[in-house]
């Protein structure tokens, strides 16, 4: 089998709020000093899902692809260290500042270029723009079925049996191959790589493809091809500070709080 994992490098979602800043002119996040970008958490989990399939099925290749800056090599290496076999970086200025549609266009072109692929694993959404669309759009490009927000994936009789998270429980669906599966945090934590794999990953070379290699029209991707135009990016004004209970002891603070709630007719 050949499984593909889509991995995205994003600004650290755990950046302290005080360090999260936006350049209003460029409508861009200003990278917080000393805080390095990370692999989007859901993508790490997607890699975990693919690797578990690989371990069970045997004779399976896992390729990780990432569209992003040169620094996204780091995200690729992380998934390689977890046990993926090959890495492809899609790095081209033409790809930048796109939307889910253009991202999916580039990724789908790369997946097609990889040749035979049995399944694509994506995170349920990237933890920066939170669209949650790319996996679905890749499936549309490939004309494959998709199962989103998976908390469990198993290979069964040549199909994927996927446990999906619903609002009020879970659903089990069978998806034929090839298909796209997007994975949610309920799946479980990604594995901690063994040091030997980290070393091997460090020595692996990551293939780099540009728009020309993929045969995509540079005008149809990135900012030029985006169908959603970012008008404004801003930090919402918070209502300000809470009214903090100032009584001496926690017991008195608790009483004070209950009094306030009664006065405000909340309790």
């Amino acid at each position: 089998m050949h499984l593909v994992v889509c991995a995205k490098q994003i600004p650290d979602p755990e950046t302290p709020p005080s360090a999260f800043k936006i350049d209003p002119q460029k409508n861009e996040v200003i990278p917080a000093p000393g805080i390095a970008p990370v692999l989007s958490q859901f993508d790490g989990i997607a890699a975990e899902a693919a690797l578990r399939i690989k371990e069970k099925a045997g004779d399976t290749k896992v390729t990780v692809i990432s569209m992003g800056a040169e620094s996204a090599q780091q995200a690729i290496k992380q998934v390689l260290a977890m046990g993926a076999d090959e890495g492809v970086l899609l790095n081209d200025p033409a790809f930048e500042k796109g939307d889910p549609h253009t991202t999916a266009t580039v990724l789908a072109a790369a997946i097609k270029k990889l040749g035979h692929v049995d399944a694509v694993f994506c995170g349920r959404q990237a933890a920066d723009w939170d669209w949650g669309e790319v996996g679905i759009l890749i499936a549309e490009h490939m004309n494959w079925p998709v199962a989103i927000i998976a908390k469990g994936v198993e290979l069964q009789d040549g199909k994927f049996r996927v446990q999906r998270v619903l609002e009020d429980g879970f659903q089990t669906v069978d998806v034929p191959m090839p298909s796209v599966i997007t994975v949610s945090n309920e799946f479980g934590e990604p594995r901690y790589p063994k040091l030997q794999q980290i070393m091997q990953a460090a020595r692996k070379t990551v293939t780099s493809w540009k728009s020309g290699d993929l045969g995509v029209d540079a005008g149809a991707v990135g900012a030029a091809g985006a169908r959603l135009k970012l008008e404004r990016l801003y930090i919402p004004e918070k209502e300000g500070k809470a009214e903090i209970m100032d009584a001496e002891t926690p017991a008195d603070q608790a009483k004070q709080l209950v009094e306030k709630l009664k006065a405000a007719k909340i309790l």
């Binding site: 005080s18 360090a19 805080i35």
Partner: peptide, 13 residues
């Protein structure tokens, strides 16, 4: 990834 062990801290250095 973050150079410190305190996951989820809201403080800066």
């Amino acid at each position: 990834t973050r150079g410190h062990p305190w996951r989820g801290t809201s403080l800066e250095r």
